[in-house]
Computed example of a mutant assay.
Amino acid sequence: MQAGRLRYRLRFEKPVRIRDESGEVIVDQWVEAFTIWGAVEPLTGREYLASAEFRPGVSTRIRVRWRDDLDASLRILHAGTVYDIQAVLPVMGLHREAQLMCGSGVVTEGGQP
């Protein structure tokens, strides 16, 4: 993976849920997990169909260096947009680069977009 393509700082957030004594969720918010460099690539219709995986709402591919803690429970903030991770795909199975197939929303304070 060429470092020059990783030109955007991406903030990854994880959900935090605090429960009361009865087990009911009283706080549901997002906190920063880590910030890394990555490439944000909107998909064209042709690339979307060629991916052999039809997922409604997947509109963006984000490429980052592989990390073991990447999973679909995280979300990404970049340039005022929230990207919900739909799938984490290792490139060529080498665990050097990850493609994150994402859908996008709008930045909100806490909770899901």
Rank of each mutant, 00 (worst) to 15 (best):
D20E: 09
K14E: 13
L49P: 09
E13C: 07
D20C: 01
S104R: 15
R9P: 06
T108D: 11
I26A: 03
Q112T: 15
E13M: 00
Q99W: 00
E97N: 12
D84R: 15
K14M: 09
I18D: 11
R9N: 12
G4N: 15
P42G: 06
R9G: 06
V64Q: 01
T60P: 02
A3C: 13
A72Q: 10
G93M: 02
F34D: 05
Q29W: 05
G38V: 08
W30N: 04
I18Y: 03
M101V: 14
R61L: 08
P15E: 00
P113N: 10
Q2K: 10
R7F: 09
V107D: 13
G103T: 00
I36L: 15
T44W: 05
V107L: 13
T35R: 05
V91C: 13
R55V: 11
A39I: 02
I76Q: 08
R7N: 15
V31W: 05
W30M: 09
E109S: 11
L43N: 13
Q29F: 14
V25C: 05
A3G: 03
E97R: 09
S73L: 03
V64R: 03
Y8W: 12
E41L: 07
S59H: 11
R5E: 15
M1N: 12
M101T: 11
G93N: 04
L100E: 04
L77D: 07
V82R: 00
F34N: 09
M92I: 12
W37T: 00
V91E: 15
T35S: 08
D20I: 07
W66G: 05
G57K: 05
D20T: 10
R96F: 12
R11G: 03
R65E: 02
S104E: 12
S22W: 00
V25H: 07
M1C: 07
D20K: 05
Q99Y: 04
P90A: 00
C102L: 04
R61G: 08
A33R: 03
I26F: 01
K14R: 07
Q29D: 12
E109I: 03
V58A: 06
M92K: 15
S59V: 14
R19T: 01
T60K: 01
P90D: 00
G93S: 10
V107F: 11
S59L: 03
L94N: 12
W30S: 05
R7A: 14
R75G: 01
G4W: 14
R55L: 11
I62K: 04
E24V: 06
Y48M: 01
L94G: 09
G103S: 14
P113G: 02
G80W: 09
P42R: 01
L10S: 02
R17I: 06
R55A: 07
V40L: 10
T60W: 03
L89T: 14
G103K: 15
G80A: 02
D84Q: 07
R96K: 14
R46P: 07
A52N: 15
P15T: 02
